[in-house]
């Protein structure tokens, strides 16, 4: 681990650079950075539940899409954009509490399977509710309703910072310790008195709020939303790959992973339009096989957690 001071100092420098960015950057870089910050926020959200507890969610794009739709429906009613943002987070919250309550009773693999199809069901649900959502035609927002790009940028920036602060706060708290205990051996954690159900649910709800808010900001930036774009499986892929690449269960891993993956995408995508998702797959596979701790593992001097434990609860074929 880097010293705490170095960690804080680099965080401060990064924050200052990003805060002054709109003053010096053109619109395109600003919109690129907005998307990068969005991915940081999403990666941190996934990290909060899956990185910390080992409960792998293949369905977090659902909260993102729900947030988008909440904002897209409220903005035309004259609700101010910041209130739409809060509404996006609240919708995600409202969905995550019952959902988490039901699915978190399931052990790791079953939870993963249950979450894998969530996205798809949300898409069908939103498509079928034509009266509210306009169904597959999507919702268009008129430009005068939308905040400026600079506003979207700063909002996304705040969400990304908030997400990172939440992860950092959890990481260094007793709550974080309990979550890691669940990841390493849930049964044992329960036995020493950890309220695993409450902890998992708390982490799950926190991890849903952030995509809800980020989704609301995205729709203000694109001005158009349809079910296919709101519940895109690619969002799930990106979240997972970025966290695994950077270092799952760490504070800085998702930031590093999102920055590198988005940067690489930006450079390579013009050259190889169809290949970049494939490269993400290769990246995921290599990290899982050869660097289970992600890039952050390269920075840590003493290993806090054995890599095979970092990926989830122990499971042997002879169980």
């Amino acid at each position: 681990m880097l010293s705490k001071h170095a960690s804080l100092a680099s965080a401060a420098v990064l924050v200052v650079i990003l805060a002054v960015a709109p003053a010096v950057l053109g619109e395109y870089y600003l919109s690129f950075l907005t998307q990068l910050l969005m991915m940081v926020a999403l990666a941190q959200a996934w990290n909060t539940i899956s990185g910390m507890t080992g409960y792998v969610s293949f369905g977090h794009a659902t909260f993102f899409g729900m947030g988008s739709y909440a904002a897209a429906l409220l903005l035309p009613l004259g609700v101010p954009w910041w209130a739409c943002l809060i509404a996006g987070a609240l919708v995600a919250l409202a969905l995550s509490v019952p959902l988490g309550f039901l699915t978190l009773r399931l052990r790791g693999p079953y939870f993963a399977i249950a979450m894998l199809g969530l996205n798809e069901v949300a898409r069908v649900f939103v498509t079928l509710w034509v009266d509210l959502t306009g169904g597959g035609s999507g919702i268009t927002l008129s430009p005068e309703l939308l905040p400026s790009l600079t506003t979207s940028y700063y909002t996304m920036f705040l969400i990304a910072v908030a997400a990172t602060v939440i992860v950092a706060a959890i990481y260094h708290s007793r709550f974080g310790l309990e979550l890691r205990a669940i990841r390493e051996d849930e049964g044992a954690a329960e036995m020493v008195g950890v309220n695993t159900t409450r902890d998992k649910l708390a982490a799950f709800v926190l991890s849903a709020l952030i995509p809800g808010a980020a989704g609301a900001v995205l729709v203000m930036y694109t001005s158009y939303i349809d079910p296919a774009a709101a519940f895109a499986p690619a969002v799930n892929i990106q979240m997972i790959v970025m966290v695994m690449f950077g270092g799952s269960g760490t504070v800085w891993g998702p930031v590093l992973g999102a920055g590198l993956v988005m940067g690489l995408r930006e450079v390579f995508w013009a050259e190889f339009p169809a290949a970049h998702l494939m490269l993400l797959g290769v990246l995921l596979l290599s990290v899982v096989l050869f660097l289970p701790g992600g890039l952050m593992a390269l920075f840590t001097r003493r290993k806090l957690v054995r890599p095979e434990v970092a990926a989830g609860p122990q499971e042997r074929p002879d169980g």
Partner: peptide, 21 residues
């Protein structure tokens, strides 16, 4: 020209790029 991956949000970003960049 750029590839918008058939996605609205990528399309929006690209027109921003074409116009401003």
């Amino acid at each position: 020209h750029y590839d918008d991956e058939s996605k609205p949000e990528v399309g929006a970003k690209l027109y921003e790029k074409l116009i401003t960049q």
